[in-house]
Design a protein around this nucleic acid. Structure first.
Length: 778
DNA sequence: ATGCGCCAAGTTTTT
DNA sequence: CTTGGCGCAT
């Protein structure tokens, strides 16, 4: 093909791209590795490249783009759409792609096309049933740990029949027994779990060369995003589709690999060049997102990792303010102070709520921040674990729909046969199950003929028959709009009436959630008017949504989420909280050097989400399992260029047990980082004698204060307090702050006390005032 | 069969 | 501080 015949790339695809970016966008045939640092415009490059492919005459149906989240896929789809006006490119998650493929070729995996996708919760139920059937009562393995082992095996393409326990592995031995039983149960229910989606498809392609070749031919150009997070099953899948046409382009960053725990293999990206012939490698190292100070701190941290490809991050953005590190007395103080700071920033018009995000290591930490933000009147959204589709009432309704779609799904049936309660109890279910197994029929079929089962009393059989009749009426609505299918379920099952009549506050909320589900169905109906298997698609979508998919980017709310969920996002202001040992790094990752490096990468990912401001914080004490425990600052903090950061410690906490407590200097500090922290809040707020003590010895004095050497110091930083705040005083009881005045050490609060109905003023730096509810922790 | 209440346990990250 | 699981009483 001569140059002249190539369509000339229209300038807009390459305009305002760096030379490196252009190189990646212009690449057409052959394998391509894009090593993209954080904020390097990766999505832009990928979408422009897709547009460029289409301009080169590649059919949109020959392009397959695999992402990690639906959200990322949706964003790409939008951008390609606006660049080219075309919609036919398959963009989606690995899991949704596999689900679709598996529906087309279900029999090859021993399934029917209407199979149900189980989430983790469902899988655990299946596993528990498997334990009953196999009659094992593991003493040293929890169901969750066995589920983990099975998941691990599946991610490594080890099927039930191939699984062999390592010697002396108790969990391994139990898994060896249970994995086949578990798998058999899934198969009988015509169901798969998350990992099966990948496993079945990978195996199908491995064992069926003609199918593999056909799909390889169909998907000529494959793009994989976040390649550093792919596991063996995903790797096998992608590789088997790029043998005859190895136009495989992957983007990723080894420093952002944070899913090792779920089987992601960093070697997939580290060895990519070795793995494919003639790989073109493009490095995107210029960062367009963060200020230099943020980037330096992140870079300093990640340099402590051994397993990485050296990479240099640079930016031409303006310097910006220093990264802040703040130490609070307690986790509540931390949450309150951050909430108050955010409220203030918004009030002053410096930021909008949507500019700001709070990241934490574990979901459990979200609570206190939620609470604090609510008290401060700041709108927020949580991207979080107990998400919508996990709620009981939603899962109940979905179970009805799943049974409608897949009558073999005994797990769905077990969930709803007595929900709402209709007099079909444990014993009856046992009898039904037994009958079903003896005759080799499904549980639903057994229920259908319950009147002919001798062990079941007539009265009970009548109830079962009524249930089956209701079910049959639901099925009649299965093929139209999803909305009417749900409405039919709600009416016929009596679920709606059940909730209405209960009258409890909680159930009213459930009702509202169900209405929300109806709305979601409505929307789905509108978006997929011509879809034939509508209900099935709706259920599939419901199973495969990710936490982050629910994130509303446009909404003016502060975003709370884990650092894992933050991947791929960016915010002008980022707070990373609870940077403490056992939390970050997490205690279960501290012993293993590889896991420790992953924790470091996780913090790196969190930091590099920040565009303009980055705040790190921790507390000396944190509530844990009910009681309060002293914390240890994260070892990662000792790896930061602290001389370039703003350190502050808004309060001198008095500590009874100095030895066990917090000492930020317990760790080695690089020679290049003398402790000359700028301490803005300290200078502003602390009495002079503290400052005098601090200067000559720097961080040591700070550490001493953390040790509680300063007797009689205040417990709460003045910035904790705000107007309207409920406070408590040991002498006067509970009250509310009606006014605040003065600055720094002279900051004064005027408090109205309920008991005495009088107002008093306090110098906050010295008063025993505490936020209401915290008085017990003095 | 249901429902309440107690006790125990366990809490990383997620498609 | 929560959730789940189990046992007992109705």
């Amino acid at each position: 093909m001569s140059f002249d015949q190539q369509p000339v790339p229209e300038p807009d695809l390459f305009a305002s791209l760096t030379p490196d970016q252009c190189e990646a966008v212009a690449h057409v045939d052959g394998p391509l590795l894009i090593l993209a640092g954080p904020g390097s415009g990766k999505t832009r490059v990928v979408t422009h490249r897709v547009a460029n492919l289409l301009r080169h005459g590649v059919s949109e149906y020959q392009v397959l783009a695999l992402t990690f989240t639906n959200k990322a896929a949706e964003e790409m789809r939008q951008r390609v759409m606006s660049l080219t006006g075309r919609r036919g490119v398959w963009m989606g998650t690995f899991h949704s792609f596999c689900a679709r493929l598996l529906r087309d070729y279900a029999p090859l995996a021993g399934l029917q096309p209407n199979f149900t996708i189980h989430d983790k919760d469902d899988s655990l139920r299946v596993l528990k049933q498997a334990m009953q059937i196999a009659d094992v009562q593991p003493a040293h393995a929890t169901p969750a740990s066995i589920a983990n082992a099975i998941s691990w095996a599946k991610n490594h393409l080890i099927r039930a029949q191939d699984f062999e326990a390592r010697k002396n592995s108790p969990i391994g031995n139990i898994t060896e027994k249970l994995y086949p039983v578990y798998q058999q149960l899934l198969l009988e229910a015509n169901a798969v779990d998350f990992d099966d989606l990948l496993l079945h498809v990978a195996m199908m392609l491995r064992e069926n060369e003609s199918l593999r070749a056909a799909l390889d031919d169909r998907y000529r150009y494959i793009l994989v995003d976040e390649y550093q997070d792919t596991n063996l099953a995903q790797y096998a899948l992608v590789r088997s589709l790029s043998i005859d046409h190895s136009n495989l382009a992957v983007t990723g960053d080894p420093d952002q690999s944070i899913y090792g725990w779920r089987g992601a293999d960093l070697n997939n990206i580290l060895d990519f060049e070795r793995d494919l012939p003639n790989v073109r490698v493009v490095r995107l190292e210029e960062n367009f997102r963060s200020t230099p100070s943020i980037l330096r701190v992140a870079d300093h941290l990640i340099m402590h990792n051994i397993k990485r490809k050296a990479k240099r991050l640079f930016t031409s953005r303006p310097e910006g303010g220093p990264v802040r590190l703040v130490v609070y007395p307690t986790g509540n103080d931390e949450a309150d102070a951050i909430a108050v700071r955010i409220a203030e920033e918004i009030r002053q018009g410096n930021r909008t709520a949507g500019d700001i995000a709070i990241f934490y290591r574990i979901n459990a930490l979200s609570r206190q921040f939620e609470h604090a933000l609510r008290s401060a009147g700041v709108p927020y959204q949580i991207v979080n674990g107990l998400e919508f589709y996990q709620r009981r009432e939603i899962k109940d309704v979905l179970a009805y729909l799943q049974l409608v779609n897949n009558p073999q799904n005994q797990f769905a049936l077990l969930r709803i046969i007595n929900t709402p309660t209709r007099g079909i109890g444990k014993v009856t279910i046992q009898r039904l199950t037994r009958h079903a197994r003896e005759l080799g029929i499904s549980l639903l079929e057994a229920a259908r003929e319950s009147s002919r089962i001798e062990t079941i009393p007539k009265r009970t059989a009548t109830k079962i028959t009524a249930f089956v009749a209701a079910y049959d009426r639901m099925v009649q609505h299965a093929f139209g709009e999803v909305r009417s299918a749900i409405q039919s379920v709600l009416e016929e099952s009596g679920y709606r009436r059940w909730l209405i009549e209960s009258g409890s506050e909680e159930d009213q909320e459930r009702l509202a959630n169900i209405e929300e589900l109806v709305t979601a169905a409505d929307e789905f109906d509108r978006q997929h008017p011509e879809e034939t298997n509508r209900l099935e698609r709706f259920l599939e979508q419901a199973s495969l949504v990710a936490d982050t998919d629910a994130l509303e980017e446009e909404s003016e709310r502060v975003t709370l989420m884990t650092m894992h969920a933050a991947k791929g996002l960016e915010f002008p202001v980022v707070h990373i909280v609870a940077v403490e040992e056992r939390l970050l790094p997490h205690e279960r990752s501290m012993d293993d050097p590889d896991k420790l490096e992953e924790e470091r990468r996780l913090l790196f990912v969190g930091m590099t989400r920040a565009q303009e401001e980055l705040h790190l914080s921790l507390s000396q004490y944190r509530a844990f399992r009910g009681d309060r425990r002293p914390t240890i600052p994260s070892q990662f903090l000792m790896e930061l260029p602290r001389e370039q950061m703003a350190y502050s410690e808004p309060s001198g906490y008095v500590d009874d047990e100095p030895d066990e407590s917090f000492d930020i200097d317990d760790f080695e500090r690089p020679e290049s980082a003398p402790p000359t922290w700028t301490d803005e809040e300290f200078i502003q707020e602390a009495p002079d004698e503290y400052a005098a003590e601090r200067r000559p010895t720097g961080g040591t004095a700070a550490a001493e204060r953390m040790h509680g050497k300063l007797q009689g110091g205040r417990r709460y930083p003045p910035s904790t307090f705000f107007q309207g705040m409920a406070v408590s005083h040991p002498e006067y009881g509970n009250g509310m702050i009606v006014a605040l005045s003065g600055q720094g050490p002279k900051r004064t609060a005027r408090v109205f006390f309920y008991q005495t109905s009088e107002e008093r003023s306090f110098l906050l730096a010295h008063s025993p005032l505490v936020p209401e509810g915290d008085e017990y922790f003095a």
